[in-house]
Every structure is written in structure tokens, then in C-alpha cells.
């Protein structure tokens, strides 16, 4: 299965003010893959899944809020039963302040879930070695953070994202930290196969408009990557030939 056959943009559903605003953003983004969390029925409220079904988008369940491998594995198994999908966005958080991944627990959970037949998409740090280890244990993609979740700081270490792209044979998805369209375009220009965006869209003043911006940014960034950019140089290189210029 090609994860990103129809869209290289995965939309996170967290942070939206209302289901109606979320629906508009999903449509405007052009995505066909959106994340959902698993919560107690009394807290979750109705309507999300029927809306996603109506739009015909696929569900990517996450393990948000898990701090140990055991917790994350259990949540993933519950999600598989609930949503009848092997896809799992694996999150094992290290601390509340940064919401950055706990690499040790993450790798442990990824290995167990991959062996159990899950299509594991781990939210990881921008560490190229950890990314390679996650691919080695059978993850279907790696999803490095550009910067902390919800920070909007963009890609703090583009060099590492490029290194990760070179280190693994599975798709690379820039997850977390994107603030605006240029961040998404940069991720694609660095060679990422897709981006996962939540807060930057759902918490924008106009979520649907930002979703459309992200859609175009991802397309533009990917096209630029495939087109092959010019190398950066220190001095100018004239684009107009001097040959045939009038002389006085």
C-alpha cells in the first residue's frame, strides 16, 4: 500500500474549535489520511468518526498521551480493534514540557508492534541514528519532529532531516513543529515524503485557508525537490550572456 498515493499531507485533528471547522479544514487540505486519538467515550463526544467516514478519509490512530512502551502497545491494540486498521501513529512521550519522544521506549514499542503486524509510523526526534533503528525494526515510515509539538518553530535542524532522508529506505514524514506554509515547503524540499500537520492548521485564525495553504506548500515543495534546485554559491552567476552585447 502506498501511504501517500493521494496526498503527501496528513492532517492531525487535534486543536480544532469545532467539528465543522475541522471538516472544512480537512476538505481544504485535500488529505485522505487524518489522525485520531483514543479516549473514553464520555470525554470523546460523538460525531468525529461519522464525519470522517462521510468525507471518505482514512483514519490514522495515535497513541497520544502514552509515556511507556507498554501503554503505547496496549493503546495501539485497542485502536486496531476500534478502527479496523493496522496503521498506528506511535507516540511515546518523554516529558510534558517538550512532548519530545522517549527514544528507548519508542523503539521498544515499535519493535513489538511491527512484529505484531502493525503498520508503524513512529513520531520520533530528529536523530538520524534512532530513525535508522526504527526502520530496522520494521517501521513503515519514520516521522521526525521539526521542533516540539504545537510550537510552530518550524524545522530547527534541517541538516538532520536531510540526513534522516539519506539514512532510511522507508518514507520520512516531517511531524510536529510546522508553523506556516514555508515550513511545510521546506520539509518537502529537504526530501521528506510527506508532512503531518495539526496545530498549524487547526489553531490558525482561518483553519480552512491555512489548510489550503499547506496543500499548495506541500505540492510546491515536492515539485521543487523533484525538479532539483540549483546549488548555492557565494558569488553571482549571470543569467544573461555577455555575448553579443553592444559595445561603445
Amino acid at each position: 500500500m502506498d501511504l501517500f498515493e493521494n496526498s503527501r499531507l496528513i492532517l492531525g485533528t487535534g486543536g480544532a474549535n469545532s467539528l465543522a471547522a475541522l471538516e472544512e479544514a480537512i476538505v481544504a487540505s485535500g488529505t485522505d489520511l487524518v489522525t485520531v486519538a483514543l479516549r473514553r467515550v464520555d470525554a470523546a463526544g460523538p460525531g468525529l468518526l461519522p464525519m470522517l467516514d462521510r468525507l471518505g478519509v482514512r483514519v490514522l490512530p495515535n497513541t497520544a498521551g502514552c509515556y511507556t512502551a507498554g501503554d503505547a502497545v496496549k493503546t495501539a491494540r485497542l485502536a486496531r480493534d476500534a478502527f479496523e486498521t493496522d496503521l498506528i501513529k506511535l507516540e511515546v512521550i518523554g516529558d510534558e514540557r517538550t512532548l519530545l519522544p522517549d527514544g528507548v521506549e519508542l523503539l521498544r514499542a515499535a519493535e513489538e508492534l511491527a512484529a505484531d503486524g502493525f503498520t508503524v509510523l513512529p513520531y520520533t526526534s530528529d536523530d538520524p541514528i534512532l530513525a535508522r533503528r526504527l526502520a530496522d525494526v520494521g517501521c513503515a515510515a519514520v516521522m521526525p519532529a521539526g521542533s516540539p509539538i504545537g510550537s510552530g518553530l518550524g524545522i530547527s535542524n534541517p541538516h538532520h532531516i536531510r540526513l534522516i532522508r539519506q539514512s532510511v529506505d522507508v518514507p520520512v514524514v516531517l511531524d510536529a513543529g510546522i508553523g506556516t506554509a514555508s515550513d511545510a515547503a521546506l520539509a518537502m524540499e529537504l526530501g521528506c515524503d510527506a508532512v503531518l500537520i495539526a496545530s498549524a492548521v487547526t489553531r490558525a485564525d482561518e483553519p480552512a485557508a491555512m489548510a489550503a495553504a499547506m496543500r499548495h506548500a506541500v505540492l510546491a515543495g515536492r515539485l521543487a525537490f523533484e525538479a532539483g534546485r540549483i546549488p548555492k554559491r557565494f558569488h553571482a552567476l549571470a543569467s544573461t550572456s555577455d555575448e553579443g552585447r553592444a559595445r561603445w
Partner: peptide
């Protein structure tokens, strides 16, 4: 704390003192 697969809901008995989590989709990134 143990996952009860949907296919076994009708044959899985509950007993006094059991702790049950019933979960569903919520918005989340």
C-alpha cells in the same frame, strides 16, 4: 487492563469489581 476484542464482547462476562475502559475516537494529532 486487557484488550477485549470486539468479536468476543458477547461472550466476555463481567464480574463484581471489574474495571472497564470503553474508548472511542477523539480529536488528536
Amino acid at each position: 487492563g486487557e484488550v477485549v476484542p470486539r468479536s468476543t464482547w458477547n461472550v466476555t462476562k463481567l464480574g463484581d469489581g471489574d474495571s472497564v475502559e470503553v474508548l472511542t475516537a477523539a480529536q488528536g494529532g
